[in-house]
Structure formats: structure tokens, C-alpha cells
Amino acid sequence: MALVQIRDVYKTFQRDTQRIDVFTGLSLDVAQGSFTALMGPSGSGKSTLLNLIAGLDRPTSGTVRVAGADVHAMSAAQLAAWRARHIGFVFQQLNLLPVLTAYQNVELPLLLTRLSKQERAERVRVALGVVALDDRIHHYPRQLSGGQEQRVAIARAIVADPTLILLDEPTGQLDAKSSQEVLTLLQRLNSEFGKTVVIVTHDAHAADKAKTVLHLEKGALIERAAVGA
């Protein structure tokens, strides 16, 4: 069953007088419980696609349906509430608020729920435990390595138990070892916890961890491959 359904999506940017067509009728599905890697050269529309799925951007036309919700048709207020419930998002960098500790950063999505302080604390500890950073709870981002920062960001992305985890080049700024740790963690989230994961990456090693790889080029889906198939 498709958790994400994208149908006939057009996305056009206007830069000064230049019109840039990123997508011209893109359609694709992402299955529930899948681990999908979006690959392609720079400018192929990978990040734009991720932003459309997360409701951070709107298609010029076409529909984006995620977990039964018409994301393309929601108001800004509806999108904010919807994202809080359904989306965990990890950026390439600058994920964490520098003035908050790891604990406080991870707690942020839970502040949008009705959980009590005690319940929030429990969830934060579990999430930081999953990413093996329960000994760094009170550290500030500046006191963490790049890999640890990304793992905190992943803990924040999963702490509210979202429907979908989206990651935009999460290993792009990491060394090989940290990269491997993050990818292994994502694999575990998918296989062990059943989370649906969509990752944008340039890294072939990262894509190897995914179950499905989608290749985009000039806004078009040119290849869909099942890894190991």
C-alpha cells in the first residue's frame, strides 16, 4: 500500500525572469514500511520532492497525498499541525537549535502534543537511547560531533512516532564512520521499528542501505530499482 502518492506534479520556480521547471508531470508512490533512497544529480529535484512530501513547499499543480491527507491542499496552519503529527524531518546540517541541549532539542516535537512532562521525558530518553546518545542528554550541539548531532536530529525525528521519516542528505557533511553509524541507525529504524524512511542522497553507499532506490534526472523518475533484487 502506498503511503505517499504523488500524481502528475508540476513544480515551477521563477528566478528573476527565468522560469525553471523542476517537475513536469511527476508521479510516484512510496510504500508504507519502505526504505527509499532518492538519488540523482544536483538540480534533479530530489530535495524539492522531499519538501513537497513534507508539505514544506507546494506543487504548482498536481496532487501530493501522504497517509491519506491531501498535503497540497492544506492551509499553512493545517500543514503545521499535520507535520507535527506525521513527519519527522532531518536536514543535511543546522538541524539543532544551538542554545538547547540534546534533550531539549529532542523534546521540541513533543511540546506540540498533549503529553505530560513526565511522559515527554520518558519518550526523549527512549529516543536518545535508540540513537545511542543517552549519555549526551545534557550536551549542547557545539559539544557534539557532526555524527552525534545528526543522531540527535534523528532522535528528534522519531520521538513523536511520526508516520514518515524524511532525510535530506543526512550524511552529506559526515565522515565515513559517522555516515555509516547514521545509515545503520536508519536501517534499524526501518527494519526493527517499521518506520517508513525516505532519504535524499548522493552517496551510493547510503543508497545501498535502502530497499528501494529512485533515480531522478531533470525532474523525471528515470529508474526505480529494488536493492538486492
Binding site: 503545521a80 499541525a81 507535520r83 513527519i87 521540541l108
Partner: peptide, 15 residues
């Protein structure tokens, strides 16, 4: 600005 972007992405309302 990036922090604001993160907050909005997490689902905090613009208000």
C-alpha cells in the same frame, strides 16, 4: 533563519 525553518518544519505554527 535556519532555526526558524527547523521550528516551522517540526510543526510549530507561524503564530
Amino acid at each position: 533563519a535556519p532555526e526558524i525553518g527547523v521550528l516551522l518544519t517540526l510543526g510549530f505554527h507561524p503564530r
